[in-house]
Design a binder for these strands. Structure first.
Lengths: 190, 190
DNA sequence: AAATTTATTCAACACATTGTCTATTATCTC
DNA sequence: GAGATAATAGACAATGTGTTGAATAAATTT
C-alpha cells in the first residue's frame, strides 16, 4: 500500500496538525481558520506546514481522504454475505458503527459546515454496488442514477441528523432505516 | 414588506457586487475569492463594499437569502389546490420551474461547492408542510423527522444532478420523481 | 431648480497573514 | 556513530484587510 515507511517526525507533524485543525473546526468554519493559527495550536513551525500542505483546505481534504481510507480498511476486516441480498445493510451498519466509534472526528467532518462532496463519498462506498442491482430490476440507467443521487444524499442527511442528536439509535437501526427509505420510502413505515 | 424604498445607488452597488461574485464563483470556490477581487470586477470601491457586507461570505449569504425570497415571491403568484393531495407536487414543480428559468444563478448557488444548509432551505419550502401530514399517518414524530431529513437532502441531490446535466427533464417530471422517491422509494419504479 | 441628504470615491493607514528562503539545530534511519 | 533528512528560527517582500476622513457625485426633498 505505502511506498515507503514514513519518518516518525513526519508522522508526528501531520498528526498534530490534523488534531489542531479538528480542534479549531469545532470552534469555527474552515474559512475563518488561518495557517498561522493551526501551526501555533499544534506548535509546529509554519515553514514545516508548507512542506506538507499548500493551505488549510489541503490539510482538510487530506484529513477527509484519510478518514475515507480508514473506513475502507475497517470494512475490509469483515466479510459480508449476499445470500439474502442483505449485503448493503450489513455494510451500512459497519459504516455507521465506525462513525459512532470515531464520532469526535466524524461529527466535525460530516457536520453541516463540512463539504458535501466528501460526505457523499462516504455514502457512495455502499451504494455504488446497488446501482447495478437496480438497473437489473428493469429500471433504465438514467433513472437509476437519479435514484442513486437521491439515496446517497438522503443518507447523508440522515447521518447528519443522527450525529447532531447524539447517535441515540444503534448503527443497525439506522442502517435499516436508510435501506427502507431507499427501497420503499415513506410507505415502509405506515 | 420593505421599510423604505432603497436608494438607486445602493441598489446598483449591491447588484453589480452580486453579479461580480457570481461570475467569480463560476471560476473558483468562495474560499479563493477576495474582497479586492470582487470590487475590481464590479468597479466598486472597496470601502463601499464594507458599508454593505462584512466579507465575501456575507455577500454570498445575502445573495442566497435573496434567491430564497425570490422563490417564495414566485410561489406566492400561484394558488395550489389540495383537493387530491397533490399540493406538494405542484409546489415542487413551480420551484423547479423557477430554478430552470434562473439557471445561471441557481446552478452556481446549488452546485457541489455551494453550501448545503442553504440548499436545504430551498427544499424545505415544500416539505415543511409534509411533516405534519406524515405524523398523521401514524408515524411517530422522531421517525417523521428522519424521513424529512432523508427526503429534503435527497431532493437536493436530485436537483444537483439535474442542473449538472443540463435540465433535460421538465420541472413536472422532476417533481413527480422526487415525490415518488419520497413516498415509495425504488419500489415506485420497478 | 435649488437645497439637503446620503452614497460613493479616493488615498492613506496600521495591521495581519502569506509564501518563500537561508542558516542552524534536532532527530531519525541505517 | 555517520549521514541523511526533517523541523526550527528568523527574516523578507508581497498581498489583502478593515478603517478613517475629506472630497465628490448623485439621489431625494422641498
Amino acid at each position: 500500500m505505502k511506498g515507503q515507511k514514513t519518518d516518525r517526525r513526519v508522522k508526528y507533524t501531520k498528526m498534530v496538525l490534523r488534531e489542531s485543525l479538528v480542534k479549531l473546526l469545532k470552534q469555527k468554519p474552515i474559512s475563518k481558520i488561518t495557517i498561522k493559527e493551526i501551526c501555533e495550536e499544534a506548535d509546529i513551525n509554519r515553514a514545516t506546514f508548507y512542506t506538507h500542505y499548500s493551505d488549510q483546505y489541503d490539510l482538510l481534504r487530506q484529513t477527509e481522504t484519510g478518514l475515507l481510507s480508514d473506513i475502507n480498511e475497517y470494512l475490509a476486516g469483515y466479510s459480508f454475505s449476499d445470500k439474502d441480498g442483505s449485503e448493503s445493510i450489513q455494510i451500512l451498519e459497519k459504516i455507521f458503527e465506525y462513525i459512532k466509534e470515531n464520532a469526535d472526528l466524524c461529527s466535525v467532518l460530516l457536520s453541516d459546515t463540512g463539504d458535501i462532496s466528501f460526505q457523499q463519498e462516504v455514502m457512495k462506498i455502499v451504494q455504488n454496488q446497488c446501482i447495478s442491482e437496480w438497473t437489473k430490476k428493469s429500471v433504465n440507467k438514467e433513472l437509476a442514477e437519479y435514484i442513486y443521487s437521491f439515496a446517497v444524499t438522503g443518507s447523508v442527511g440522515v447521518v447528519h441528523k443522527w450525529l447532531k442528536e447524539g447517535m441515540k439509535q444503534s448503527a443497525r437501526e439506522l442502517a435499516e432505516m436508510v435501506i427502507n427509505l431507499t427501497n420503499r420510502g415513506i410507505s415502509a413505515f405506515v
